[in-house]
């Protein structure tokens, strides 16, 4: 089922609300916690929204076409920022080698260690799984490998 979803410039965003969570999803979510012991689970698995739905649609629906992401970034005046500048509330978008936005999340904290190591903590949703608070690269390998940080300047 599709809901009415628009950018700030009233451009429609393709979306869909999905089915109920299955037993497989629940079992897989439990396995995920073992695979990523440092990631902190925040919510139970749900199929209603995906990562882009969390980042750009307030958890109401799934934005499953990556071609919608540049449209949102542009219309909602997201400006790319350096990883060092990222603060809680900024967003991160994971891209593959072809520029496909395959994952996204919200920055919850950014810590710099010894002025060398920067470790942003992200809140993101992993497919049909739940939301996790995790290190930038402590997530399934299908996401990324490139990351870009953005701040909304509306």
């Amino acid at each position: 089922m599709t809901i009415r979803l628009e950018t700030s410039k009233r451009t429609g965003i393709v979306n869909s609300q999905e089915r109920e969570i299955s037993v497989f999803d629940l079992n897989w979510a439990r396995k995920l916690m073992r695979q990523f012991p440092k990631a902190i689970p925040r919510t139970e698995p749900t199929a209603l929204y995906n990562c882009h739905g969390l980042t750009f649609a307030s958890r109401r629906t799934r934005i499953f076409l990556s071609s919608e992401i540049p449209k949102i970034l542009n219309d909602d005046k997201y400006k790319e920022i350096d990883i060092k500048e990222a603060k809680g509330g900024d967003i991160v978008v994971y891209f593959d080698e072809n520029g496909d936005a395959n994952h996204s999340g919200i920055v919850v904290a950014n810590t710099e260690y010894d002025q060398r190591l920067i470790l942003p903590m992200i809140c993101s949703k992993w497919g049909n799984g739940g939301e996790f608070i995790h290190g930038l690269n402590d997530c399934p390998r299908i996401y990324g490998p490139q990351t870009k940080f953005y701040r909304c300047a509306l």
Partner: peptide
């Protein structure tokens, strides 16, 4: 289950 987009 983990994929967010058809391309991924």
């Amino acid at each position: 289950v983990v994929a967010n987009t058809p391309h991924s």
